[in-house]
Amino acid sequence: MKRVESELITNVEELLEDKKIGFFMGYENGSLPLRTSPCFVKEKEDVQRLVWNCFCTNNLSVYLVSLIPELPAGTKVGILCKGCDSRSLVNLIVEKQLKREDVLIMGISCSGMINIDKLTGNLDGGRILEVEENEEEVILKLDTGEQRFSRKDSLYESCKNCTHPTPSVYDILIRVGEHAPKSVCPDPMIAKFRQKERLERWQIFERELSRCVRCYACRNACPNCYCKECFAEQTKPRWFGLSNELSDVLFYHLVRILHQAGRCVDCGACVRACPEKVDLRLFTRMLVDEVKERFDYEPGLSPNDSHLLGVFSTDDTQEFMVEVD
């Protein structure tokens, strides 16, 4: 990791010095153990704050649409992108929210992000003093001793089944090593979910969403949710009620999720942002697999793609308009 970090820091230093970028977005150590936080670097002396480890979970593309207009015209923004982040970024280009020339993509081939909850579940009050990671393990050094976790078992679900750990579009690529997780499509967990009876699926849907507190973190963490005025906040008309009762919560999520078809890259940002750990991926990943299966399309792989919902082909499958049992 140290090699990757120093490569990253050297790159950013050079880019800032050569004025190839005026702004860089990466990660810095967070205020809590096992957390990082987005780090926005303008000055060379701040570059040393940048870090890279298995906790760099945020999808930084989420900031681009609002950030770029606020910067002095012509400022190129450098951004550290994991595979999924780069796809979000590319999708923003496809959706004409961003110009390719406004960003410098520093890709990083990602070996998956670690789900902190899987690590902190059994610490038994021990305080984390130090964290180490290698290709196989994450090692926590606690005041009560050492705990080792298998990397593979501790990944986020979205990372376990990542299809593109390495960005396909980048200006500079930092290689972390060739231990990227094996891509699986469709996602086995989702495939299992789909086999369930309709009633059971509905119950799972209900169970997950009944925990929602409507904080909108899933929306705000999602790079695809850049609407200047979200339907959830429109008042003329108001599309659905304000309560946290299931019907209102369902409406919000169904509409938001449906708007992700052909756009969601399964980065998992929504799941990670959710304070109630609602498994939104159950729904978004289903769309991802559906889109892949029906249209053989994966968003965010090329800025020259046409938007899935923006093109019509006469041989598009259409039977989904009416579900046949």
Partner: peptide
């Protein structure tokens, strides 16, 4: 405010 995503978690919790 630069990093803030603008969600309501901090207020709701």
């Amino acid at each position: 405010c630069q990093k803030c995503l603008g969600c309501g978690i901090c207020t709701y919790f």
